Every structure is written in C-alpha cells, then in structure tokens.
Amino acid sequence: MDANTEELRAAHDVLAELYAERLADALDRMPVERAVLDLFCDLTLAADLGINVGDVGCGTGRLAPYLAGKGLAPWGVDLSPEMIRVAQRDHAAFRFDVADLRELPFEDASLVGVVCWYSLIFLAPADRHAAFGELYRVIKPGGYLVTAFKAGSSQVRRAGRSANLGVEFDLYWQTPQEMERSVTDAGFTTVFWGGVPADGPDSPAQGYLLARKAVVDPPR
C-alpha cells in the first residue's frame, strides 16, 4: 500500500466514530441527495437486472438502510477497517467488507448498480483510470453508477485538520467536467448530472452524476 493510501486509511480509522455521530441522519437534512439516490434506485430497479448494488466507500454504512428501504440489496466496502467495524456495529443487517476502490471484491458484471457517495474525491489523478475501470467491470450491462462529489478546481487539498483529531489526508474537488470525463472514458453514458451551488467561500459546490453501462459493451 502506498503512503498516501495508508495515510487516508489511518485517518479514516480515527474519524469513524465522528462520522457515525455527525452523519447518521445527514440524508434527512438533504432533499437533493435523497432525490438523486431515489432516481438511481428507480432506474436500477426498472432495469430488471437484480437488486444487488455496491456502496463503494461506504464509510459508516449510513446509506445501506436507505437503499434497502427502496428495494435494493447493498453491499458496502471501504478502505478503512474502523469504518467497516462501525458500519457492522450500527447496521448489522447488511454486509460490509474492507476493500480498495482500485481492486474491488465483486465479480465481473455482478452488480446492477454502484453508489460512490463522496468516495471518489480521494482519488489521485494517477489512480482514476484503474478505479473507474473497476467500477465499469463490476456493473452489469444496463446497470447504473451514481456519484456525489465536491465540485472545485481539481487541485489537491489537505483535509482533516478541522476535526482536531490529529489527522490529515489528500482529497480532490474535481470539476464536473473532469468527473464526467472519467466516467465516460471508462465506458459509461451520462444519464443525469446536476449540482448545488456553494453556500460560502470555504464550502464547495456539490456535484451529482448518474451514468449507465451500455447493454452491449462498445468496441475497444
């Protein structure tokens, strides 16, 4: 494991309990995020390809009950063992495993959809091709990928200090155009994109992107 990945994992091990405390009811306060997830759920179920979806970068597992309530069967994975421990503790009805986004544990074309909720913001440019290739690999033809991300200028940022827990890590607030390019370069087709403007100079805009894997793979 490279140094940046190790730093990221160690930091989120420290942050796990804080995330569980602060984000447990976050969706209740975010109607736009619920609407995007609802669109993903509706389209995924309408594809009639099954109900198994991946929650990649699941953190403390807070999305699992919501996805299950819509009729899907989520399987969460996260880089941080402590995040997974908290997810298993707080949402024992669901499956959670430690895994790297660049090497997912799912079989080829085994999922009808994947949710990446603010988990792609940690990908360095050099890792994006492999990561989006993995997402494409595990989704069934005709299935969907949805992501929420912080929209910005794409430059690396140092985060974590504000938690006052002695951790720091890199993240990237990508432009919507850059995020869409990564998705389409991997072979997906954009279905929906949107965003919410920043509410202050130190707060980024929120971006949302929903894409579909073609029923028949395009020629490579």
Rank of each mutant, 00 (worst) to 15 (best):
W75Q: 05
W173Y: 07
L45V: 04
V53T: 03
R85L: 01
D38R: 13
G76Y: 10
L111V: 08
I51M: 13
D28M: 00
E7F: 00
H91E: 11
V156S: 05
S110P: 00
L8R: 15
E6G: 08
R137W: 12
V112A: 14
A151V: 00
L27V: 13
S80Q: 02
F188M: 12
Q177T: 03
E168G: 08
M1C: 08
L23T: 13
A3S: 14
G143A: 04
P65S: 05
I121P: 00
E21F: 14
P176R: 05
P31F: 09
Y172M: 00
E21D: 14
I121W: 01
R128M: 08
R128C: 02
S162W: 15
A87F: 08
R137F: 10
K70N: 11
P31D: 12
F192S: 09
L8E: 11
R137I: 09
G69N: 03
P74F: 11
T60H: 06
C41R: 05
V146D: 01
G142S: 01
V36W: 15
R22T: 15
D170A: 13
T60L: 10
V146N: 03
G76P: 07
P125I: 02
G200T: 00
T190C: 10
A16K: 03
E178Q: 14
A93T: 01
G61V: 02
T5M: 12
G200H: 02
G195N: 02
K140E: 09
G200Q: 01
M83E: 09
Q155D: 07
G50K: 07
F122E: 00
L8Y: 12
A126S: 11
L171F: 04
A47S: 13
R95Y: 04
